[in-house]
Computed example of a mutant assay.
Amino acid sequence: MASVADRITQRVAERGPGAWVCTPGDFLSLGSRDAVDQALSRLVKAGKLRRIGHGLYDMPRFSGVLNRPAPADMDAAVSALARRDGVRIMPDGLVAANRLGLTNAVPAKASYITDGPSRTLKIDGRTVRLRHRRPRIMQWAGRPAAPVVQALEWLGPDAASDVQVAATLKRRLPDEVKHDLGRNINDVPGWAVPLARSIVSGQAATA
């Protein structure tokens, strides 16, 4: 019978190197918490897994460019953090706006918002900042249109009224995101409703 460590290794390997960040809680179906903790510790010492933060592990992908293990996937790490702590976490508005092509600005530190407590922590040597936000924003967590709402909130009423913002989002957003925005348009800030409607024009408001 395969050991807990062997089964953990198999589960992580099935996702592919660098593709998944895991926590002890992801393996409790394989054994007790003590058994899982001991197995993870042995795997880290053996070099089969990497500990990138408190209770966070990955199987690193080797980077030929860097000639060393590649940095951990931060979004995967934050997703694992959310699972571990039972909270919702999303990239902050600046990150969302950058990914949508609405700004060239990038945060100096990895920055996310959460319905959990505000805090700063280290993941794979990088500083990660979590800021508590109100439920109206966090209710978008996991929805396809979440980055759009985040970006619009960061831009604010003046910048978001720029016709180029609407044109960029209308051109770049896939239909799935437009549908989600249209279905939940009453959940966006009041000042952003006209802009959201212009983005989803020509898209069905309901699924």
Rank of each mutant, 00 (worst) to 15 (best):
R88W: 05
I185A: 03
R99K: 11
K48C: 06
A145H: 07
T114C: 00
A82N: 08
M74F: 07
K48L: 06
G31A: 07
A108D: 06
D75I: 06
D34N: 15
A5V: 03
K178I: 00
L49E: 08
V149F: 09
P147D: 06
T103K: 10
G125Y: 11
A141W: 00
I185V: 12
G55A: 10
G64I: 05
I185D: 00
G16C: 11
L49N: 04
D158Q: 13
P147L: 03
P24W: 00
D162C: 11
V149R: 02
Y112V: 01
L66E: 13
G47L: 03
G202N: 07
R143A: 14
A146I: 00
L130Y: 02
L195M: 15
M90Y: 05
G116L: 05
M90K: 14
V36A: 05
R68N: 06
R7D: 07
C22V: 15
G93F: 02
A192Y: 08
H132M: 06
L173R: 11
T168H: 09
V4R: 12
R172T: 14
V4H: 11
M74C: 04
V78F: 05
R11P: 13
A19Y: 02
V193M: 09
A146F: 02
L121N: 11
E153A: 07
D37G: 11
S63Y: 09
P17L: 09
K170M: 12
L49V: 08
S63N: 05
G64Q: 10
D180T: 09
P144D: 12
S3D: 02
I199G: 03
V12C: 05
A97W: 01
N104E: 15
A46Q: 14
G16S: 12
P24K: 05
I89W: 03
N186D: 14
V163T: 04
R134H: 04
L81G: 05
K170Q: 14
V95T: 13
A70D: 14
G25I: 00
P144W: 00
R11S: 08
V193D: 08
H54Y: 13
R136K: 10
A5S: 15
R119I: 03
N98T: 12
L66H: 07
L169A: 10
G202W: 01
N67C: 05
L155M: 15
T120W: 04
A13C: 04
A72C: 15
L155I: 13
A80Y: 03
T206A: 09
A166T: 15
T103E: 05
R42T: 06
F27C: 09
D175M: 13
R33P: 00
A70S: 15
D85S: 12
Q139L: 08
L66A: 15
A77L: 15
G125T: 01
P144N: 13
V44C: 13
G53W: 02
A2Y: 08
S111E: 02
L181D: 08
L43R: 10
P24G: 13
R183K: 12
T168K: 14
T127F: 10
R119S: 06
W191M: 02
T168N: 14
